[in-house]
Structures are given as structure tokens and as C-alpha cells.
Simulated assay, not measured.
Amino acid sequence: MNSPKFYLYFFSIVIITLGCKDTSKKSESVTFVPTATIDSTQLETVSLSEQENEEKFQLTEDNAIDFFFNYEKTLNSNKVKITTNLGSFTVELYDNVPYHRANFIYLTRKGYFNYTQFHRVVKDFIIQGGNSDDRKTGKKRADIGRYLLPPDTRKGHKHDRGTISMPSSEMDNPHMLASPFEFFIVVTDPGSYHLDDEYTPFGRVIEGMDIVDKINNQPVGEGDWPMQNIYIEKAEVVE
């Protein structure tokens, strides 16, 4: 018959053995389970993940208004400089037309307008930009999203000479929702006031109106498309 000392010795061996097995399992778990400590490699991974999520974001009819409502609150600038192959001009955007202002600055910062064209020129009336026959423009639109903006015609702004405004979509559009990717600038002196109740003025040219007039004087072909392409080489927010 075994003595009590034998059992005490036996149980001590068992406890030590189990303790070693637990330590081994914990050691293995460190290899596969992330810890609370983040090294520089993990930070780079998180950063890349955030970039991918941002790149995947697209504007839609459902989220555009909420997005621009919040985006507009972050803006500290209301001027955009547009450089074309014929010269540059600067527009100042109205503070009280928040969705259209936010949309224009957002697209500018996304680089959308770069390498688009002034694709419609109507003598002594308007120049219209933001489109192109280049497939890259269609791809940029698809990447940004598909959405329209509500008109905002009752803020007291008129279609005076130099006004920048947003055309309505060519889609089935009884409410005259605005096509967010294009804009037009009035060159009529003193203005084209028959547009006031249909389109949304959201800014005005404050510098370089002579360049706008120069664009308006270019010869055009069928569909008011300039016979020589007029490119927007760069649009940039003036901080």
C-alpha cells in the first residue's frame, strides 16, 4: 500500500506537468492571436486598409445629400482656380448654396475636372465645362458615383455676367435636378436672367473674365462643340 508521502509526491508531479502544458499553450497562442501592441508594420496595414475603404466609397442618390451636408462644414475655402490651355480664371463660391459649393470643391479636390473640356460654347451666352469625349472622364464619373443635386434657386443670386451655375441633368428629370459634374458660366452682358428660376447659381468669376470671354469667342462646330478642344488643364482649390 502506498504511503501518504507517495500520493503527495505524485500530485505534485501532476500539478507541475499541467502547469507546463498551460504555459506551452499560451506561448503558442501569441503567434496566432493579435496582441494589443501595434508595431509600425501593423500601422501601415491599417493605413492601407483605410485608403482602400476611401477609394471604394461612391456617392449615390441615397447618400449624396448627407455627405455634402457634413463635407461642407469642413470647408475653409470658397475659391477655385481653373487653368485652361487658353489661360486661367478664378471663381468664388457662395456660402449659402452649401450642397453645390461642397460638390464643386469635392470634385476639384478629387481631380475630376482636370483634363475635361469646355465642350459647349454659345456665343454671347455661356461656356459650359466638365465633360469630355475622353473615356477617362466617364471612368472618373463612375468611380466617384452616380447622383444628382437638388436645385437651390431662391438664395437671391441671379445669372449675372460671370455667374457660375449648374445645368440640369439630361435624364428624365421633372424636378430639374442638377448634373453635378458640369457647370456653365454666363457671358451675357448684363446677364441671362431667364435662367434664374431653373438653374442654381453657386458662384461668380472674380478674376480672369477676359479668359472666359476668350473661350466664348472660339469657333464652334455642330452641337456648339469648339472646333479646337479647350482643355481644363487643372482645377485647384485656393486655400
Rank of each mutant, 00 (worst) to 15 (best):
M1V: 08
S3L: 12
S3N: 13
F10C: 07
F10W: 12
I16K: 14
L18W: 14
G19K: 10
G19N: 13
C20N: 13
C20S: 15
T23N: 13
K26V: 12
S29W: 15
F32V: 15
F32Y: 15
F32T: 14
V33N: 14
V33H: 14
P34Q: 03
T37M: 12
S40I: 10
T41L: 13
E44G: 04
E44Q: 13
V46R: 10
S47L: 09
L48C: 03
E50P: 00
Q51Y: 11
E52R: 13
N53F: 12
E54F: 10
Q58S: 06
L59E: 09
D66V: 09
F69Q: 14
Y71G: 06
Y71I: 01
E72A: 11
K73M: 09
K73F: 06
N76M: 00
N76Y: 07
S77G: 02
N78S: 14
K79E: 13
K81E: 15
T83H: 05
T83K: 09
T84M: 06
L86A: 00
G87M: 10
G87K: 08
S88M: 02
V91L: 12
E92C: 08
L93R: 05
Y94P: 05
V97N: 05
Y99Q: 04
Y99N: 05
R101P: 08
I105G: 08
Y106W: 14
L107W: 04
L107Y: 14
R109I: 10
K110H: 14
K110T: 12
N114E: 02
N114D: 15
R120Q: 12
V121R: 09
D124T: 07
N131F: 14
S132I: 05
S132Y: 01
D133W: 07
R135E: 15
K140W: 02
K140C: 02
R141A: 07
R141V: 11
D143C: 02
I144Y: 11
R146Y: 13
L148G: 04
P150Q: 09
D152W: 06
T153P: 02
R154M: 12
R154K: 15
H157F: 10
K158A: 10
D160H: 12
G162H: 02
I164A: 05
S165M: 03
P167I: 01
S168H: 12
S169N: 03
H175E: 11
A178Q: 08
S179M: 00
F181H: 11
E182T: 10
E182G: 01
E182Y: 04
F183R: 00
I185R: 01
D189M: 00
P190L: 01
G191N: 04
Y193L: 04
L195N: 06
D197N: 08
Y199K: 02
F202G: 02
R204T: 04
I206H: 00
E207T: 03
D213L: 11
K214A: 09
I215H: 00
P219G: 02
V220R: 01
V220H: 06
V220K: 01
G223D: 01
D224S: 12
P226D: 05
P226C: 03
M227K: 13
Q228N: 12
I230M: 02
Y231V: 09
Y231I: 01
Y231E: 03
I232T: 08
K234H: 11
K234F: 09
K234M: 07
E236K: 05
